[in-house]
Design a binder for these strands. Structure first.
Lengths: 312, 312
DNA sequence: GTCGCTTACGTCTAACGTAACGATG
DNA sequence: CATCGTTACGTTAGACGTAAGCGAC
């Protein structure tokens, strides 16, 4: 049974006329005749009584009519669903982000993106860089945004907005009012670092090592799983840390944490958008990726990114 | 969007493999490839991620999969519905019958027919011959069984079981014990006849007229709308009547009404199955018509048709 | 090298249109 | 005779198969 035939049957049944159905379908009347004939032959049923100029459904035709209506409706619903999907108007955008991008960057971006597509839903999985990468590889996430360049076959990295990692100290710390401290000074104070697997930690260790300060020289007094925990540790006077300036916005404003420059050291990184090269992106994900590319770093910093120097 | 493509897509999605889907569909693998390619082009969407030897649905593919499943299921349901319909296993058999066939013949036949098709329902409309004919013409009834040959363009008559119209008198009537009476005697007793439009009345009038007894010569003392009313009239001693032997079964057995032969007159008729020549019969009606044809008059008379001579 | 999807190409069915025919009112 | 469905036939698109190509493990 061919859907085309069923569709034509549906039109004929509705119009009670072969010729009117043909007109409605932009076909010629013999074509409609042929399809109905073929359908009747395929089903081995007579579907219409041809009564002079009147065409009526037979009992069998009425049964088929109900099924035909359901088929045509289902097809229509499918086409509409696909249409909306293709336009990125519907669907679920499944994203992943490591902690800093996931907590401080993506929420702002999604806040701009979602209002443009009221029909969509967004799932944002915030884990760490490694886990995000794994999920992209498995296909659980369409796109990930991570804070470190982690290579993997089948995974493409696209550089994204820039981030600066800064030295953060408690407002009551002796360094709080200094313009800058030397790199060597870092080894003299208790240091709090992120857990292994964190992109931030990777970047910090690389940057310090490149500048001639092996990570082992730091007086690491604590290793914490989240940036939030580290901030609490800093405020409690446990130690200092180097973290994304993005995470310090509120604390700088509030004056509870101050950032201090490190002499001759600027730790900058790009966040990366990662995706599986072997998998196709959903239209919605494509739309989002395009949206990301139109975002200049400016449009992010424009909204309340803390200035480098603490306000307090 | 072609249903064939969707169906093939559905198989590929289920098997997570083009080649396995091809095998399941008895197609070659390139054919399946081609269909998926065409579908992806038609929808302007990538439906599968081809990951080496693994094939996975994209997000768009998953959306389509839901629709595809509904489409395939709907098609399947339609085919099954049609199948059952064609086999006459389901549906409604809409019949009409004039009073005698409708009340005394069809119930017996339907009692044999329906148990063979548990899924069907039967609507039996009992009116008179003319009304039954009209309804067949209008298409409200697929088949009618009437007691007289009434010609109409587009209506075909098929002779059915034979019926005998007999003289019925009350058990207390002077004629009750006679073997027969003369035709002329009929004009000497009060006569009860059926209403206009009745096939029985038509047949009786024709038969008497043919035998030389104009209907006007009867001493008609009552005209009643139903056979049942006439039987009550006979039992009450209002008069005699000529009616179908089929309607007298119980009364003869009970001894309340006796049948008497009329000399040199036997009034026989065939019931006719009528149908519209311009309309197709539903498979169920076809099945029923075939069933009717296999019924010999014997199989009807076999079950308790009253003997011509009264038992009492 | 093997497995599995894609591409290329040839065949053949069938979808469609045009034109002629036929029946109904 | 006008309208509407059917039949006949020619054209073209596409469904399918075979064979070769190609990337991944």
């Amino acid at each position: 049974m061919d859907l085309r035939q069923v569709e034509i049957f549906y039109y004929v049944a509705q119009h009670r006329s072969f010729s009117k159905a043909a007109a409605a379908l932009s076909l010629t009347q013999p074509t409609v005749s042929g399809h109905i004939k073929a359908l009747e032959a395929a089903l081995n049923l007579v579907l219409f009584d041809r009564l002079g100029r009147d065409v009526r459904l037979t009992h069998a035709g009425e049964i088929l009519y109900g099924h035909a209506k359901r088929l045509v409706d289902t097809k229509q619903a499918a086409l509409q669903g696909i249409e909306e999907l293709r336009d990125g108007l519907r669907g679920e955008l499944v994203l992943g982000g490591s902690s800093i991008p996931g907590q401080y960057v993506l929420p702002r971006i999604l806040g701009q993106f979602q209002p443009q597509y009221p029909g969509i839903s967004i799932a944002l999985h915030i884990t760490d860089t490694m886990e995000t990468l794994d999920r992209v590889v498995r296909g659980d996430l369409e796109l990930g945004i991570v804070g470190a360049q982690v290579a993997h076959a089948h995974v493409a990295h696209t550089p994204f907005v820039e981030d600066e990692l800064v030295l953060a100290v408690s407002a009551s710390h002796p360094w709080a009012d200094l313009a800058s401290v030397s790199m060597d000074a870092l080894t003299t104070v208790p240091f709090i670092q992120r857990e292994r697997g964190s992109g931030s930690r990777l970047v910090v260790e690389h940057a310090l090592a490149d500048a001639g300060l092996p990570p082992a020289h730091l007086r690491v007094m604590a290793e914490m799983g989240t940036t939030e925990a580290i901030k609490q540790g800093i405020k409690a006077g446990l130690g200092v840390s180097i973290m994304s300036s993005l995470a310090l916005e509120d604390e700088c404003k509030a004056g509870s944490i101050c950032t201090v420059a490190i002499e001759r050291l600027s730790i900058r990184r790009h966040f990366s958008v990662i995706r599986h090269t072997g998998r196709a992106l959903s239209p919605l994900a494509q739309t989002f990726e395009t949206f990301l590319q139109t975002l200049t770093p400016l449009s992010l910093t424009l909204q309340d990114t803390p200035s480098h120097a603490p306000t307090a």
